[in-house]
Structures are given as C-alpha cells and as structure tokens.
Simulated assay, not measured.
Amino acid sequence: MSSRSPDLALAGRLADAADAITSARFRAQDLRVSSKPDRTPVTDADTAVEDAIRELIAAERPGDTVAGEERGGSASTTGRVWVLDPIDGTKNFSRGNPVWATLIALVEDGTPVVGMISAPLLGRRWWASAGGGAWLRDGTGEHRLSVSGVASLADSYVSTTDLGTWTEYHSREAYLTFVDACWESRAFGDFWHHCLVAEGSLEVAAEAIVNPWDVAAAQVLVTEAGGRFTDLSGAERFDGGSALSTNGRVHDAALELLRKP
C-alpha cells in the first residue's frame, strides 16, 4: 500500500476484515434486514462488520475511541476517534446492488487524518492520509489520485444521492438552480461520488443531509487529491450535517448557488 503509515496500515486490515464479512453476506438467502428508528435499513452484516472492527481496534489501539453508525459514539470529541460506517449503501446491499462500501476514518481532534473506503464488489479500494496523498487500488494496480482541472460550473459533472433529501433538508429550488448551471448531473450517491471527485471523474458531489460516518473518510480523500470538502455553509468539517466535495476550482460558485433562497 502506497503512503503507508501504522494507522493507515491498520485501516487496511480493518477493511480486509470488513470485506470478508460483507462479501460473504452479500445476496445471502438468510440475510436479515430490519429498520432503525429513522426507517433506514440495517442488516446483520452491518452490525457484524462494526463489531469486528471495534474488536480489532480495541486490540490494536486500546487508547482510541470509536464512533460507528450501528453502535454509537461521538465523532466530534477530542483525541483519536475511529469513525465507522460498516456498510455505506445498505439499501443497495440489501437489494443486491453491488454499489456499497465500508468507510473507515481516523479523526484526531476533529480533523480526519486517515480515510479508507473499500468496495469489494466493485473491486475498488480508496485511501488517503494527511500529507500522504489519495490513492485507488483497482484491477489495474495502484494509482495516485488528483481532482480534475475543470474551472467552471458550466463544464462540471455533478452528483447527489437523492433529490428528495434537498426538499426535506435544504432547498430543492437551490439544487435545481445549481444543476441547471452545470454541464451534466447524475445520482451516483453515497460514498461513490466523493471518490469520483477525488479521481477527477466528477467536479462536484453535493449532499443535503449526511452523518459524520458517511463523509469523514471522504473529507481526507478529497482534500488529499487536491480538492475541497465543506458542509453547505462552507465550513471545512465532516460533522456539519451536509457535504460538498469539489475539485476546488468550482467550490465557491457551487456554494453560492446551493445557498437556501
């Protein structure tokens, strides 16, 4: 693994353990799916992955704390916190769609310093560490990532997760105005569009609503690839409740159009 550090190496081992569980449970006939209080789905694979990762962290880094989607904990505390989303894209996972990933971030005093995103059914793993660059491993090898050089929204390729979230949590009008100013829009969604920004395949990934574990790993990945990551107010934070990843060159213009009317 390029740009290796002890924490990044541990993140890789955590991702290996997660991939072994998720790959085995994907499309399993006995997969158990239930709903959380917010009506989002959770599977037995989600909880199994988080429990396995927590056990490994406790053995390897007993002084660190953990915040995860399924078992709780605060991602906004001081010190070292591992922030986990055992399966980002659970709706896809539970319906047999291979676009899902395990997200692992190490946050130090509120700043993500390691990010690991592993999508085994896509055959892709992304990672980054502070000062170490952003990387992708796929079927052709390891590649250092860099955001695109597109300089205007009119030439930008953009993505969100679900148009309905803009109506509920931010402004549907603002998002559609933004889309109209861009070249092309898609809904790759979840972890994937942030990774595509880091790869230079998209210019913007915008989210009206996120949880910290959804984007902590994406923040370090995008910034180490040369891009910018903020919430929709423009604050450089992963726990602000929304997210905007860009190549940096179109960030301010995107923020301006995405403001609530």
Rank of each mutant, 00 (worst) to 15 (best):
L176C: 03
F229T: 01
A67D: 00
K36V: 03
N211K: 13
G149S: 13
A154S: 14
A198L: 05
D239S: 12
G226F: 06
G68C: 02
V114E: 10
F238T: 09
D214N: 15
A11H: 14
A52Y: 13
Y157M: 05
Y175W: 04
S171P: 00
R124E: 15
I104H: 01
L103F: 06
V113K: 05
T77N: 12
E184T: 10
R144D: 07
D7N: 14
F238H: 09
M1E: 06
R25G: 00
D46F: 06
N97A: 08
E184G: 02
N247T: 03
V215C: 08
H193Q: 06
G73I: 06
A134N: 07
D64T: 00
D85K: 05
A105L: 10
V222K: 01
V179G: 00
K36N: 12
D180P: 00
W183V: 00
G164V: 11
L8V: 15
Y175R: 02
G240P: 14
E142Q: 11
D190M: 09
L153S: 08
V42W: 03
V83D: 01
L244V: 11
A11F: 14
D46T: 02
A11R: 10
D16C: 05
D88H: 00
G149P: 10
D51T: 09
L153I: 11
L258N: 05
G68P: 13
R39K: 12
L232A: 03
R39D: 13
R95E: 03
